[in-house]
Design a protein around this nucleic acid. Structure first.
Lengths: 184, 184
DNA sequence: AAGAAACGTCAATGACGCTGACCCAAAAGG
DNA sequence: CCTTTTGGGTCAGCGTCATTGACGTTTCTT
């Protein structure tokens, strides 16, 4: 384990060992950062949601439906990576309370295409604004280069499958360039 | 920042509005990245833990106790940000099954100083190794500069309180340089 | 007409978090 | 010395989020 305390002052530890130690500490730091960072990242919306008797799962539905209006239930399930039953427990109330609408697909009438109502959009926006401030602060403090690095690492942290889902979740932004490899 | 082509349909959007849109998209992307990234980041350990009838909460305890051997229950509670009861439900079994030991504090005998047993260290290490590979891959793909940026943004995503907790959670590494600007 | 697909739903289970209410033992302080 | 505070534990009950398994319905496909 972390033998630490070893060589704060240039001891002849093997370079390999030292590197290994650094790597380990670096990676443990990454664990900490992700734990605390993700927790605090979600804290804002969570507070709002709690007041409304909703949870993080509701937010995710609002978020992804907002991002892809007209998404099918199946696609949403694939993106969220949860089961039909789990989604149902959260989606049904959202529909009943008028946050989300269901419309039969024009090609396939078995489908229930999901979209946000005005009320749903307002809710999503409120949650988004809270998180927006938080992320903006972090982005500003870190600077553009750091932000690009952050994106690259987070993308690497995602599985290949999630990366594909992300693309699907991207609203068809700029036609030609799905990637903005700028900034690097 | 990602200049992302022009306006898809050359509308006379004001520059300010365009910038606003870009920011919004950027921030929504951050939401996606954090959601997918964190999920997949935890997926590896989760799978191992599930086999052993444990969950993410157990991992966190093993992680932070491993990082600060001899930590008090109170400090652990502060770091995790959960209640005594919630911790108890996870800590008690870990002690009973021999992953964690409790020792009375030498100064204050009311305290139960927590440490990992050998079994606990082995378990933690196993979980760590799984996550290590995953993060290493992301770090390698992204490169050192990106890693440093990632750290800066994640740190910014943490609340001030969490940042203090992080410092407390840091084993007294290299005294002078809390940052290793070299990275990867 | 048969089968598969898209969606919904009932029922039970488990992990993880919370509040409230107590309890004990040890430390602190008048 | 005696009371209060603090560190820790525990019982009971609640809510969210996710799971599996088993059906049922409508609609598309072959």
């Amino acid at each position: 384990m972390p033998a630490m305390s070893e060589a704060p002052e240039s001891k002849p530890v093997g370079a390999g060992r030292q590197l290994l130690f650094l790597r380990e500490e670096e990676l443990r730091l990454a664990q900490d950062l992700l734990f605390f960072g993700y927790r605090d990242f979600t804290a804002g919306p969570d507070a709002i949601l709690a007041e409304l008797g909703m949870g993080r799962a509701h937010h995710r539905v609002l978020h992804f439906v907002g991002r892809r209006p007209g998404i099918t239930v199946g696609d949403l399930l694939a993106i969220l990576g949860i089961t039909k039953q789990s989604l149902g427990r959260v989606l049904t109330p959202l529909v009943e309370e008028g946050y989300v609408t269901q419309a039969p697909g024009r090609n396939d009438r078995r489908q229930r295409l999901l979209s946000l109502t005005e009320k749903g959009e307002a809710m999503e926006r409120r949650l988004f604004e809270r998180q927006r401030e938080w992320v903006m602060r972090a982005y500003r403090e870190a600077g553009p280069v750091a932000v690009e690095g952050f994106r690259r690492v987070m993308l690497g942290l995602m599985g290949a499958e999630a990366r594909a889902q992300l693309d699907r979740a991207q609203p068809a932004a700029s036609p030609a360039s799905p990637r903005s490899r700028s900034a690097a």
